[in-house]
């Protein structure tokens, strides 16, 4: 564990807390994409299957459970909790996440898994676990897309939503620093290029949004993404 990873994890937790508070206090889900958070829930559920098979550390297990529970509760609030669910703007949340996120990621994960030959010689269960892990890496990188597309439709983005995007972006950016750190200071640390590629892609998506967000803030005007 290094300082970049710890800060990255904390940034991730903080972004989730920001969103949970926003939902609980404002009792309002407008401008928030349910689809993005359902994708994140799917990401955590497919990545953390090792919760049942391998113990790494108390920190590791607690964080995994915290991510799953907090994301599940976000999904629950937007979907079912009254009065929040009545403020969810379903008509605007239209990104076709099955066709353009889950499907392609599943295909990509299957291809990488078999081409890399990582799972050969291991049991079917381990292979499925590996496949799901790879899928979750791909899916996480683009899970924010429904949210970004939803925000494009809104004339103004709340500070809180801006903060959420900022902390989510910092989380992945800090993970990149963590990988660089580990490469230098951990002998035998093996590169995982799929995770690197997805990590950079993910960071760029957030950075791009945040760039336009800050520009419009500085001008003090209304915020809208270029279409």
């Amino acid at each position: 564990m290094n300082v970049f990873r710890l800060c990255g994890d904390m940034s991730h937790v903080f972004s989730i807390v920001v969103l949970l508070l926003r939902l609980r206090v404002a009792k309002n889900a407008s401008g928030i994409s349910l689809r993005t958070h359902e994708l994140f829930l799917l990401v955590f559920l497919t990545r953390y299957t090792d919760l049942f098979t391998t113990y790494y550390s108390l920190y590791n297990s607690c964080m995994k459970i915290a991510y799953i529970l907090s994301t599940a509760s976000i999904v629950y609030m937007i979907r079912l909790s009254d009065p929040i669910c009545t403020t969810y703007d379903k008509a605007q949340d239209t990104f076709r996440h099955w066709a353009f996120a889950v499907g392609p990621c599943a295909v990509l994960a299957t291809l990488t898994h078999f081409i890399s030959g990582e799972g050969s010689g291991y049991s079917l269960f381990v292979n499925i676990q590996e496949l799901l892990w790879t899928f979750s890496i791909y899916l996480e990188s683009i899970a924010i897309l429904p949210q970004l597309i939803l925000l494009q439709r809104y004339r103004e983005v709340e500070n809180l939503t801006g903060n959420y995007i900022f902390f989510m972006g910092s989380y992945r950016a800090l993970y990149i620093l963590n990988w660089i750190y580990r490469t230098y200071y951990e002998p035998g640390y093996r590169h995982h290029y799929v995770a690197y590629f997805c990590g950079v892609l993910q960071t760029l998506l957030y950075a791009d949004f945040f760039y336009y967000y800050m520009q419009s803030k500085r001008r003090g005007g209304r915020f809208s993404l270029p279409t």
């Binding site: 564990m1 990873r5 964080m63 590996e130 093996r190 995982h192």
Partner: peptide
């Protein structure tokens, strides 16, 4: 295995 290499990351 991939999961062994980045096992301690979230």
């Amino acid at each position: 295995l991939v999961m062994d290499e980045v096992k301690d990351e979230l």
